[in-house]
Amino acid sequence: MIPVFDGHNDILLKLLRCDPAMLDATWLVGDGAGHLDLARMRKGGFAGGFFAIYIPSPRDGQNYDAMMDHPPYDVPLPPLIDAPAAQPTALAMAGILLRMERVSQGGFKVCRTTAEVRDCLARGVVAGIMHMEGAEAIGPDLDALYSFHALGLRSIGPVWSRPTVFGHGVPFRFPGDPDTGPGLTEVGKDLIRACNALKIMVDLSHINEAGFNDVAAISDAPLVATHSNAHAITPSTRNLTDRQLAVIRDSGGMVGLNFATVFLRPDGRQSPEMDWQPVLRHLDHLITHLGEDHVGFGSDFDGATIPQGIGDVTGLPDLLVALSGHGYDAPLLHKLASENWLSLLDRTWGA
């Protein structure tokens, strides 16, 4: 089984919402729902990945899933959430990640260096990287960035899709393109410089095109989109244009293929009823425009609707079989599955 290192998942949000008395069991053996738990990770060859701290928006009773299964759609963005409101949830999710390490009895480790990630993969321990999807919990003074870094934060996206004090994300719109508004604020530019100084990876997956351009102009690190796809195949605002792919390639960066059906299907629908062709078309396009050393997986497990052929984390071997049948040889499969992510971390954090 080829081990897979993954660019993005949302299991922390799932665990935050579960019955606290069932949290450990839900993590270790599962609850029969969702995409991830430690037992299924082992079964599916999931070797590690980025575990997202995400601040959910207040629920407004709208059925956005139904809207996104009937394009065209333009999902309204929720308002900004400030740091005082976001920090308790972010701290709780960071605590859950650290608790996952403690209760796993050596089966899972929160990693802070590339060496730790590589050691985990060598020993069959699932490696977790603390990631922040949207920097709501980091106030404009940036002090909290240093606190979360001390807890283990090693990757951050300045925005999810709603705005933050740092910049603007893209709405969930199909069809559409990522040129949807202004770029980084001045404090957003300060955030990128601080992340560079701390060797915190900056994730561009939800940022709009102007913000993308600002990060590219400021950052001295490889540009990374942990869970994004090709706009040329699926014209969603969340997907990357060929120009953006070229900028990422030239920085020595990377893109993780998002398994979310709305970003894979050419028709933009959310339905999981699809064959392998959209996955193959996106990967072919990303490899053509980025090179085979700059593409990996960014599943969005537990945060999106996934193609029925994958289903959950135990479907990763089926994905690799499909890629092999498409003509991807063993060296390329190993690059896509984990080697490219490890090399990217070397370039971003240092070996």
Rank of each mutant, 00 (worst) to 15 (best):
H282D: 00
H282N: 02
H282F: 00
L283Y: 06
L283V: 12
D284S: 01
H285M: 06
L286T: 00
L286M: 07
L286Y: 01
L286I: 06
I287D: 06
I287E: 03
I287C: 10
H289K: 13
H289V: 14
L290R: 02
L290I: 12
L290W: 06
G291P: 08
G291Q: 08
E292Q: 13
H294A: 12
F297S: 10
F297D: 02
F297V: 14
G298N: 04
G298W: 08
G298A: 10
S299N: 06
D300P: 01
D300Q: 07
D300I: 05
F301A: 08
F301P: 07
G303M: 11
G303E: 11
T305V: 12
I306N: 04
Q308T: 12
G309K: 02
G309T: 06
G309Q: 13
G309V: 11
I310E: 12
I310W: 02
I310Q: 09
I310T: 09
G311W: 08
G311N: 01
D312C: 13
V313S: 02
T314S: 15
T314I: 09
G315V: 08
P317W: 04
D318I: 14
D318T: 15
L320E: 05
L320K: 10
L320N: 10
V321C: 15
V321Q: 13
A322C: 03
S324I: 09
S324E: 14
S324M: 09
G325Q: 15
G325L: 11
H326S: 03
H326V: 11
H326I: 00
G327H: 12
A330Q: 15
P331K: 10
P331A: 11
L332F: 06
L332Q: 08
L332P: 10
L333S: 04
L333Q: 07
L333E: 00
H334D: 13
H334V: 09
K335G: 15
K335I: 03
L336C: 00
S338G: 07
S338R: 15
E339Q: 14
N340F: 08
W341P: 00
W341A: 05
L342K: 06
L342W: 01
S343C: 08
S343I: 03
S343T: 06
S343E: 08
